[in-house]
Simulated assay, not measured.
Amino acid sequence: MKIDLTDTTASKVNKALVRGRRAIGTPTVGMVLTLVIVTDEENAYDALKAASEASREHPSRTLVVIKRISRSPRDRAKARLDAEVRVGADAGTGGETVVLRLYGEVVDHAQSVVLPLLLPDAPVVVWWPVNAPVDPAHDPLGALAQRRVTDTYAAEHPVRELAARAAAYTPGDTDLAWTRITPWRSMLAAALDQVDCDVTSVEVAGEEFNPSGELLAMWLADRLQVPVRRIRSKGPGLTAVRMETTCGPIVLDRADGSLATLSIQGQPKRAVALKRRDTAELIAEELRRLDPDDTYASALRFGVENLSAATAAEHAAGDSASGGTGTEGAARGQADGKSAAAKKAAAK
């Protein structure tokens, strides 16, 4: 069922939701959270499609907030709220969807519109597919949520955006650029479980300015406390990780964006599925956990500048002593003598 409301209020939207549920006989008890999507008109369709697919796993009330900002002073003075209420099949799943278009002064008070529409006693997740605020936790809409999802890949300067995310990090913040590397982190941790060696250095290859590549490199440097170098490749996305160990190299190579090859010294090569996932899968993964991601926070705070400092130190040394895998004293990327077992535990 679909109900269109023009120049309406949050109270009328709530009444339309109740009317729609009664018309199709659908209660709200099956919904587990409220997902608020803050986007523009151009990206609203793709974001709503991804959220609809993710809600098959996480039935939710989805509120799409579209801020219609006009450059004309005359139009900006016209405060108005338009809404589309979709319940049942028209929502794509058994949940509910409300598309809110804000005009004029209402744009600056989006939280006042959204607050009455949140499911009672249910977690709130806010997702910015594009144009995320610098400090999501202190954004008026972000302040309503337990989890705040951004995507630095959509930023104009993705790697620079990571530094801003680190400076403003609040427990509950997360990034789809981090979610994209979950399979990589799992695969690398599993590979380390198969050997009894010390990791001495790491190389991470991927597209330039790819925030997922930077986050993976920061995670490895932070957890293993070894030199980590970022290497540019043509992509797509992340293409390879090479870990030098005292027992020989461990290489996870994905040249085509779908199938990867895992090579461990002394073992046969293995093909592993490591496809690039779509946005719906990424959002579904983030909705599985609503507690703060301490591992992400630690990797983020390690800082891109530490990787840059380590790489600069290696180039300054001419790579003569280590064959290009790192130099001693390179920021926090310096090896600290941890045992292999400790490093494996940290990587997990």
Rank of each mutant, 00 (worst) to 15 (best):
K2C: 11
K15P: 00
L17C: 09
R21K: 14
T26C: 10
P27Y: 05
L35V: 03
N43H: 15
A44S: 14
E53A: 09
A54Y: 00
A54W: 03
P59D: 06
L63E: 10
I66E: 11
R68E: 14
S70P: 11
S72T: 10
A77G: 11
A77P: 13
G88F: 05
D90F: 02
E96L: 07
T97E: 14
D108S: 08
L117M: 15
L117Y: 10
P120Q: 09
P120G: 03
V124E: 02
W127Q: 06
N131R: 09
P133L: 04
G142K: 04
A143V: 04
R148W: 08
V149N: 04
A155Q: 12
P158R: 15
E161N: 04
A167H: 11
D173V: 09
S186P: 00
A190W: 09
T200P: 00
E203Q: 11
V204H: 01
V204L: 09
L215E: 10
A217L: 10
W219V: 10
A221P: 00
R232N: 11
K234M: 08
G237D: 00
V241F: 01
V241L: 06
T246E: 03
C247H: 09
G248K: 01
G248R: 02
L262D: 04
Q265L: 13
G266I: 05
G266H: 09
Q267D: 08
R270F: 02
L274R: 05
K275A: 15
D278R: 15
R288Y: 07
D294Q: 15
T295W: 09
Y296C: 08
G303Q: 01
E305S: 15
A309P: 00
A312S: 14
A317N: 01
D319Y: 01
G324I: 00
G326A: 01
K338L: 15
A342P: 12
K344N: 08
K348P: 05
